[in-house]
Amino acid sequence: MAHAALKTVKVPPNSASLEEARKRTIDFFKLACRSLPSVMEIYNLDDVVTVSQLRSTISAEIRKNAHITNPKVIDLLLFKATEELSNVVTHSKQRHHLIGQYVVGSGLIQDTGAKDQGISDFLKQFYTSNYF
């Protein structure tokens, strides 16, 4: 379903106003959310992540750009997002791409900052790599 919807994606005309861009962004978010169940299935993600976690990852990705007000820029970002989404649902990616990008990378499984409170810079760097 989501599959079919995405196949017909075309480059829409530019958004006329910020309002329209906002609406399109929300539409994209809904589209992405609708495709999540099939994504879970395609990539076999049940044991690493839940749909709601992925949903919040998507919204976090979108919120990263919340400060942008130029509708043209938003359109471009939306276009890139749509392309990414279609890559995901057409299985053009592999499981570890998704896990690396959206499950581990985005900070769902985050180093809990609380533990690192009060430790020296040396130790913080030591935990990340040997080279500092």
Binding site: I119, S120, F122, L123, F126, Y127
Partner: peptide, 23 residues
């Protein structure tokens, strides 16, 4: 994930609460 020897001891000393004075 290996680390240089002295760094390991320096890190351990901090975790153990006997922090060595060199970084």
């Amino acid at each position: 994930d290996a680390r240089d020897d002295w760094k390991i001891i320096r890190a351990l000393s901090e975790v153990a609460g006997f922090c060595l004075p060199y970084d």
